[in-house]
C-alpha cells in the first residue's frame, strides 16, 4: 500500500531523469577546445568575451590599416557600406533619431564587438585579434560620443558595462507561443 502511494512519485522522477538522457545516442561530445573556438556569439552581459583590450586611439589607426575606411568612408560615413557614425545633429533627446547605425543605436555594446569580430572586414572575416576588435569597437564608440575618452581601455570587463543610449529604450519581441496571433487585439 505504501509502495502504491509512492508509485506516482517514482514515475515522475523516473520520467524526469529519462528526459535528460539521450534517446538515440547519435553524435559525439565536443571537446572544451572545440566549444571555445566556435563560441563567438556574445551575450549582452558579455560572458563569452575573450581576454583582451584596446583603445579608440589604437582603433583609429586600425580603422585605416584594416581597410574599414575603404568601404565605410574615412570618417565613418560616405562609403558604399553602411554608415558607422551618427549624423551631426547635436545631442538629441531621442537617440533613435541618429539613424540605424549599429554603434549608436544598439542597446548593448556587445553587439558591436560581436559583429566586427564575426563579420569584418569584408573578405578577411575572423582575422582580427581580440585586441584589434576591442580597439575598433572603442573607436566607433568614440566617433559616436558613446565614450568621450580616446584612451579609455575597453576589455572583457569594461565593454559590457558601457551604458548605450538605447539600453532600455527598445521594444522587446513578444513571447511566442504556437497558434497565437501576431499581436493580441490586431485582427490582421
Amino acid at each position: 500500500m505504501r509502495l502504491l502511494k509512492l508509485l506516482p512519485l517514482i514515475l515522475l522522477f523516473g520520467a524526469a531523469a529519462d528526459a535528460q538522457s539521450p534517446t538515440y545516442g547519435v553524435g559525439r561530445t565536443p571537446t572544451d577546445a572545440e566549444i571555445l573556438a566556435w563560441d563567438i556569439a556574445i551575450s549582452p552581459t558579455g560572458e563569452e568575451l575573450p581576454v583582451g583590450s584596446g583603445t579608440a586611439d589604437e582603433g583609429s589607426e586600425l580603422y585605416l590599416e584594416k581597410g574599414c575606411a575603404g568601404c565605410h568612408g574615412t570618417t565613418g560615413a560616405g562609403g558604399l557600406a553602411p554608415r558607422l557614425v551618427k549624423r551631426d545633429v547635436g545631442v538629441l533627446e531621442d537617440p533613435w533619431q541618429y539613424g540605424r547605425i549599429l554603434p549608436i543605436r544598439s542597446p548593448y555594446a556587445t553587439s558591436v564587438w560581436d559583429f566586427i569580430n564575426r563579420g569584418m572586414p569584408l573578405g578577411a572575416e575572423g582575422t582580427l585579434t581580440p585586441d584589434e576588435v576591442y580597439s575598433i569597437t572603442a573607436y566607433l564608440f568614440f566617433l559616436n560620443d558613446v565614450i568621450d575618452d580616446d584612451l579609455m581601455v575597453l576589455d572583457e570587463k569594461t565593454l559590457p558595462a558601457i551604458q548605450m543610449p538605447n539600453r532600455d529604450n527598445w521594444a522587446q519581441v513578444p513571447d511566442w507561443f504556437p497558434g497565437q496571433p501576431r499581436l493580441q487585439g490586431y485582427p490582421y
Binding site: S106, S111, R118, Q172
Partner: peptide
C-alpha cells in the same frame, strides 16, 4: 537564457 541582440536581431 536571453535574447542575444545579434546583428541579425539588430
Amino acid at each position: 537564457d536571453q535574447y542575444y541582440m545579434t546583428y541579425n536581431d539588430f
